[in-house]
Design a protein around this nucleic acid. Structure first.
Lengths: 189, 189
DNA sequence: GGTTGAAGTTGACAATGACAACATTACTTT
DNA sequence: AAAGTAATGTTGTCATTGTCAACTTCAACC
């Protein structure tokens, strides 16, 4: 139905996001312009402005998509594999992950992004809160999230060299396995 | 001496880096253009090209400066306070830190940056290697670095909320304090 | 003293983000 | 169903930017 005429696209916002997402992952953030997205969607250079206030708004929408997907991935995985799932998301969508956490788009400046991010962060804190008892819970959860987030970033940037032949997945679980949270059962406070 | 004529600046590269660094921290990476740096250095729009091949080369030089400074800070602090020192650097120079680890400049593509980064990374691994015995050393060091790096990033982005009135420095050490590395003395194998 | 090359300048061009004015279509409201 | 209105896309334009090319100035060396 939507394809009747060629003037009104009918689905442009979504297609712009798809096109932009592809450019983002394949050619990086620097190559991602509103005009390029418009070109790929087969639409005039100014059409995107009907759906996004400016370039940053498009980036914010991309980031929001990313947070939604990350949240879904965390939901799928049990609390136990949350860490592996987080790292896996980052390695599967490196540019998206950087966009989400790179600080280039202010989360607070974009309400829709803010809401989605908040939802995902809450899920995250919940996932990582199981690591300790109430007293140090907040700190331990922060540590767990930090560990996993840092691991993702450093892997993404190629700063961690794993031994030859070491499985990436195994590496992640090995690294995570070296730490214990202070109040976790089996290790004194 | 150097200020004799106004044609040959004599110190342009350094001044461009200083100007660019200021723009970077105060207005963010997006506002940092070669032309803006040139303007601030009181020089024509194309003068920077005598010192930097392109915009990315300038960014690479800024990142290299950052790595040098981070390395120095780590050297000043003992191995014990390496973590706090790392986080402190990130919080003091947020934009610089993001530039260094944001993946926007390819480290490998810029030899000078690559060398400086390698030096600093080696120092880093050394700092964080003290956390465990040889067998799991690499993994434990990776975990320590990841923890600290993630903590820095998440703090930078305002994703970790510390309790009201909790000192930032104390918070960092509290969070770090919740983890113990598997083979560290005082905790099971 | 003249030559040469590094460091800076002016001038140009294409790409981009953004604004304004206009065109076309869809939806609502009788 | 007809008209009016707002949403969606288009064309035109402009300032800014990165980058290339050609020219100029100056300092160091023979």
């Amino acid at each position: 139905m939507s394809t009747s005429s060629s003037y009104h696209h009918g689905n442009l916002r979504t297609e712009l996001l798809d096109a932009a997402g592809e450019v983002l992952e394949k050619r990086g953030l620097g190559a991602l312009s509103l005009r390029e997205a418009a070109r790929r969607a087969g639409v005039s250079h100014n059409a995107p402005y009907r759906h996004f206030a400016n370039r940053e708004a498009l980036l914010a929408a991309l980031a929001a998509e990313g947070f939604a997907e990350l949240g879904a991935a965390l939901g799928r995985a049990g609390g136990r594999e949350a860490g592996a799932s987080y790292v896996s998301f980052a390695l599967t969508h490196p540019q998206r992950f950087r966009l989400m956490f790179g600080g280039l788009v202010s989360i607070d400046a974009h309400p829709e992004l803010r809401e989605q991010a908040t939802r995902t962060f809450d899920a995250l804190r919940r996932s990582f809160a199981g690591s300790g008892p109430p007293e140090g819970a907040a700190h331990a959860a922060a540590a767990a999230w930090s560990l996993v987030h840092g691991l993702a970033e450093l892997l993404l940037n190629g700063h961690l060299r794993r031994a030859a032949g070491e499985d990436p997945v195994a590496y992640v679980s090995n690294v995570i396995g070296t730490v214990q949270f202070a109040a976790a059962p089996g290790c004194g406070d």
